[in-house]
Design a protein around this nucleic acid. Structure first.
Lengths: 343, 343
DNA sequence: GCACCCCTTGCACGTTTGTTCACGCGGCTT
DNA sequence: AAGCCGCGTGAACAAACGTGCAAGGGGTGC
């Protein structure tokens, strides 16, 4: 873990070598002037291969940004529908219907990571949740230089590692690296065993500091959990919850969670006992963030997503096509089996 | 010249075929999800070649935008220098020093065209000059959809066609097409023979309307002319000016022109007789536009560029590297032979 | 209704690009 | 001082890509 140095640039002179500088120049020549890599190699006095690598570097480090604009007159039917019905600006990620859930998640996460750059800026406090979706995203973030921004962990994470899920610290670090932001860990388990412990903890000064940061978030990024789907997600695998917890959740009508806080199909949370032991932010706190980005992949999460929408947790939704379609198809008249969701 | 139609899209339905829609989807898959064209072909049920073409289309029509960000901490030394000395935000286009003038112009124009998109937006009045630089640019504009914008011709153009220079109408049309903007032609010669004719013309209602538009410009785009360079540009080739005119210009100390209006090294224009017959906007009018983008390529235009800077005509400068270097090198202490240019 | 034309498609080829490998240089350690 | 490690380089190969070409299909004009 050596310094994040400025890789040799920074000095005066006409051709101050330095990888980033070269990459920048190569990118200019390639993307703005349509030269072939061969031609660029000659101009930079190096080999084609190196130019190829420089360009990869340029893309990977966010020197080059590729964005896609719908021509305004035809934003996908789906995105319009979702906006109209849920007052949420949606980004539908095209994924073939037959794709596997893993594929789907991976592809949504990839797109989401790229789209995210638009929302991140300097001087922001950015709340990040934890889960397989976030984990996948973290692996693909397109770096974007910002100053004085801060990544805040939204909920505790215990320390168990399940397939494909990284330690929360690793996940957060990636977000921090990508945006050059400080990282604020939240070193608590996902759920306390005893609500009293949580309350005690919540009175700690160090905890308060973090909660204050959460309350001042500019952007929050999270997935949704769906405890009763066939393919249960993160929290439900790692042994964080016991059979009794699931039964209670089921009895109390929970359909999903955001950052360990559970809600019903209508978005309500009152009386869900598990929440007294959860470490994620109260929805009232979450909703203070002006931008709340939710990433969802897979129809299995539909009821959960619906609930999060009902709770008004989401301002920007990144979702795979199939799920988006299901969302608008059923929300018209026939409510899903799980809930009533009045238009 | 068939309709600019909406090429089949626009209907309801789940998979509303339509080239633009497909292109959009392909672009998503390619640029946001890193699929290969082969994979995309399968998802779209078409051939690889078609996908390649779709992506070309997507790029060519501005569905995909590729931009390059300097990491803020190291914007080229040159750009900083120019900003500091001339209060102009510069975009330096990397071009090898040994490139031919034609190459250089072409490459600067290409970059400029791509950069231009950032400056163009809806509801704007955009003034466009005429010349070999503008002509080259017009051939590479990256379309960007806008509403209710207007392209205004800055100066007359006669009707002669010299190498590589297109009729002004063609040039303007390209700008209009690229941005979906209305085009306002200015059907006058580049220079009147008699100042009186110009004045008469200027009193015409139709002319006034156009002049009013010019006065309300949001953006102006132009090159600079340098009548006394070895490779004289546009206006000086087409027989617009006679030997006597050149002599007068020389005698009166002119170093260059912007949109047919000439100026001295110190930016002054008073007493340059040719200007009474010129059709371009008075600098006072030009300077009303909040953004004034100047595209310059080739060291030969340096004195001319310097004068335009002195006249305060420029807010954004797009310039090739060699010229940029020359600009900052000499403006430090030793003024060019042609002028005194107090810092 | 038929013929024509233009636009689009997929194939095949040549080019361009990504990646693997072996090597060489410089810095740091022992 | 020698050795080791890691990084960056260029060559060679394999994959991915762009484009000329001939064929097919839909619409238009006669």
């Amino acid at each position: 873990m050596v310094g994040i140095g400025i890789d040799g640039a920074g000095r005066e002179g006409d051709t101050p070598s330095g990888k980033t500088r070269d990459a920048l120049r190569a990118a200019h020549l390639y993307y703005l002037q349509d030269l072939t890599m061969d031609a660029i190699a000659k101009e930079l006095h190096t080999s084609r291969s190196s130019v190829s690598r420089l360009l990869s570097h340029a893309r990977a480090t966010g020197l080059v940004e590729i964005s896609i604009h719908s021509p305004l007159d035809l934003p996908s039917r789906l995105e319009q529908e979702i906006l109209a019905r849920h007052e949420v600006s949606a980004h539908v990620v095209p994924v073939p219907d037959h794709a596997s859930d893993v594929d789907r998640l991976e592809r949504v996460a990839l797109s989401a990571a790229r789209i995210l750059s638009r929302f991140i800026d300097s001087n922001q406090t950015i709340g990040v949740a934890w889960g397989s979706t976030m984990s996948a995203m973290s692996r693909h973030l397109a770096p974007k230089a910002t100053h004085n921004s801060e990544i805040v962990q939204l909920n505790g994470a215990g320390n168990l590692r399940t397939t494909g899920i990284l330690y929360a610290s690793e996940l957060l670090r990636r977000f921090g690296d990508a945006f050059g932001a400080r990282v604020q860990q939240f070193p608590v388990p996902a759920f306390f065993d005893d609500p009293a412990t949580k309350e005690a903890f919540w009175r700690e000064r160090s905890t308060r500091r973090l909660l204050d940061l959460q309350a001042a978030m500019d952007v929050a990024i999270f997935g949704v959990g769906s405890p009763f789907a066939e393919v249960p997600s993160h929290v439900y695998q790692g042994g964080y919850l016991e059979r009794a917890d699931f039964e209670a959740l089921s009895r109390e009508g929970a359909v999903g969670d955001v950052a360990t806080v559970f809600y019903r199909a209508d978005g309500s949370t009152d009386g869900i006992t598990l929440n007294t032991r959860a470490t994620g932010p109260d929805f009232a706190v979450l909703r203070r963030a002006p931008r709340r980005i939710c990433v969802v992949s897979g129809r299995a999460k539909l009821p959960s997503l619906r609930g999060a929408l009902a709770a008004g947790l989401i301002t920007d939704l990144i979702v795979d096509e199939g799920t988006a379609r299901a969302l608008v198809e059923t929300s018209a008249g026939a409510p899903a089996a799980t809930s009533a969701d009045p238009a």
